[in-house]
């Protein structure tokens, strides 16, 4: 057992204080940033932090279970004494199809929220948070990326709530995390399929649904998932992985439902009961297309051009009539 001595603590504090780096860094295709929802550390209050990854269009990073290939991002921290970083709280992923293989992850931009517990009292007037982030960025090929991110924050007694841009970013990311309560969920597993029956928490008529399994070797990622309505319930069915581990007694993951009320997700952690659910009619492998931010920008730009071309003509015509 290693007992931290004063010398070790001092050495660690010095190491943290002298650690070089910025809160932002860029690899070939991903810009990583360490952000916090505030302008200071308030002793004893949790610090809402996050790793924001912005990707070059066409590139993606992975969810905690990457699917057929890939690797999830990891974060290791160097924090002052008494600070404790929680795990990454994973937003609902999307999926990618690559030559018959299906992978799970994020494109364009993702914020991975992480809550950091702080000690009740802090000796100095500022602290340094250092996060080493590793990820795999992929398009048609994959490249490992990493960044050492450092953020210096003053220690204050009172939070300043307004005027801190990252606060909004992190609050939005947290509000979009999968629900944890309010849904009816039931898992079943048999030789033909693994199924998840559900009733959404919100009044939302599901049009499609997809289950992202936490556990490796449970479902065959490259097979389309089935979807059907059974009276009051909806059900997603998945083809078991041919080498599936049959001893699993819980179904864990994230269910994403697209319906009349938009897209909603829920954290799933339910007993996996034995049964023999029949596969439901298959859905397309890829999610329903939603225009990306870049597409919106392109549409707006096109509109702006049309307006710019038409307005002078209309104005000219009016002037002519007058």
């Amino acid at each position: 057992m290693l007992v931290p001595t004063t010398a070790m603590v001092t050495a660690l504090a010095l190491l943290v204080a002298s650690w070089p780096g910025a809160a932002r860094a860029k690899s070939a295709n991903v810009e990583a940033a360490l952000i916090v929802a505030g302008d200071a550390v308030i002793p004893g209050l949790p610090l809402e932090a996050g790793i924001r990854l912005r990707m070059t269009p066409g590139w993606h990073v992975y969810w905690k279970n990457p699917g057929d290939s890939g690797l999830p991002p990891t974060v290791s921290w160097i924090l002052p004494e008494g600070f404790r970083a929680g795990p990454i709280e994973w937003p609902a992923p999307t999926r990618f199809l690559d030559e018959g293989l299906v992978t799970y992850g994020y494109h364009d931009e993702v914020v991975l929220p992480i809550r950091i517990e702080t000690p009740g009292s802090l000796p100095g007037d500022s602290v340094a948070l250092v996060a080493r982030v590793d990820w795999l960025e992929c398009k048609d090929i994959c490249v490992p990326g990493s960044a050492t991110l450092r953020l210096d924050l003053p220690v204050k007694a009172e939070p300043r709530l307004r005027g801190w841009a990252s606060r909004h970013t992190i609050e939005r990311a947290r509000s979009q995390l999968p629900d944890t309560v309010g849904w009816f969920l039931q898992g079943e597993s048999g030789p033909r399929s693994v199924s998840l029956s559900f009733i959404p928490a919100r009044h939302n008529k599901p049009r499609s649904a997809y289950f992202y399994a936490d556990e490796p070797l449970l479902v065959d990622y490259a097979s389309p998932q089935g979807f059907e309505q059974l009276g009051q319930l909806w059900r997603v069915t998945m083809k078991p992985d041919p080498n599936a581990n049959r001893n699993l007694d819980r179904l864990t993951g994230v269910l994403v439902v697209d319906g009349t009320g938009g897209s909603h997700s829920v954290r799933v952690d339910v007993p996996l009961r034995a049964g023999d659910p029949a596969p439901a009619p298959p859905q397309p492998l890829l999610p329903p297309r939603t225009p990306s931010a870049a597409a919106y920008v392109a549409i707006l730009a096109a509109l702006a051009i049309v307006v710019a071309l038409l307005v002078p003509r209309i104005v000219r015509r009016r002037t002519h009539h007058n």
Binding site: S69, G70, D98, E99, L101, D140, I141, C142, P216, L217
Partner: peptide, 13 residues
């Protein structure tokens, strides 16, 4: 351990 989920780059079929 006779089956695990492989990790790596996707096979470039």
């Amino acid at each position: 351990t006779s089956a695990t989920q492989p990790y790596g780059c996707s096979v470039k079929y």
